[in-house]
Simulated assay, not measured.
Amino acid sequence: MTNDPTVRGPEQRKKDVLARLAEEVDIWVASAGGADAPYLVPLAFHWDGTDVWLCTRLTNPTGRNLQAGGRARLALGNTRDVVLLDGEVTTLSVGDVPTRAVDGFAAKCGWDPRGSGPTYAWFRVRPTAVEAWNEEPEIAGRHLMRDGVWVV
C-alpha cells in the first residue's frame, strides 16, 4: 500500500495508460491456444494509437498461441501500478503490415524484423478491454475500456 493518498480519476488514468503505451518498449504477453499451454513472455511492442503491434516467430509457443487463440492479455507495469489490455489478435505476414506500423516498431524498439527472415510474423492486438490501477484505492474505477470502446 502506498502512503500517497492521491487517487487518479478515470481521465488521468487513461492519459497515463496512453503515455505508457507510447513510451514503454516491452510488454508482457499472455497467450493460450490450441493444444499449447498458457504462455507468458515479454515482447517488444509498438502502439500506433489504436493497436498494439507485436512480432515474434510463428514457431515459438507465443507465436503459435497468438495465431491459434486469436486473443491475448497484455500487461504493463508492476504489481502496484498495473495496466492490463485484453485484445483480439490478427496474424499478419510482413507484407500485410502497414509500413507506418513496421517503421514505428523499428524506431521504438531498435529492431527491424523485416530483416529477420520468414519465420517471423506480425500480430496486431486490437484492445477490447483496458484496466488500470495504482494500488488498492484505484481498483474500483479500473475499467477504462469495455467491448473495444473507451468508457472515459
Rank of each mutant, 00 (worst) to 15 (best):
59 T>N: 11
17 V>R: 05
18 L>A: 11
89 V>S: 03
42 P>M: 09
23 E>A: 13
54 L>T: 05
66 L>P: 05
73 R>V: 05
91 T>C: 12
83 V>M: 04
47 W>L: 12
41 V>Q: 11
107 A>K: 15
94 V>K: 15
112 D>W: 03
85 L>A: 01
66 L>E: 05
68 A>R: 10
37 A>T: 07
62 T>G: 04
88 E>N: 12
72 A>L: 04
29 V>H: 00
74 L>Q: 01
38 P>T: 00
3 N>S: 12
75 A>D: 00
100 R>C: 11
57 R>L: 15
102 V>T: 15
71 R>H: 06
46 H>Q: 10
107 A>R: 14
38 P>Y: 02
60 N>Q: 13
103 D>N: 14
108 K>S: 06
53 W>M: 03
34 G>Q: 00
7 V>S: 07
8 R>G: 02
55 C>P: 06
91 T>M: 10
21 L>F: 11
98 P>S: 13
78 N>Y: 01
97 V>Q: 03
97 V>K: 05
9 G>T: 09
64 R>K: 14
77 G>R: 02
4 D>K: 12
68 A>I: 06
2 T>D: 09
97 V>G: 02
14 K>S: 03
16 D>E: 08
72 A>Q: 00
113 P>H: 12
79 T>I: 14
2 T>E: 11
47 W>A: 07
45 F>V: 07
83 V>Y: 04
114 R>G: 14
34 G>W: 01
25 V>C: 10
18 L>E: 11
28 W>L: 12
37 A>V: 07
34 G>L: 00
51 D>A: 10
114 R>Q: 14
8 R>H: 08
62 T>L: 05
100 R>E: 15
90 T>H: 13
11 E>F: 04
31 S>N: 03
95 G>D: 14
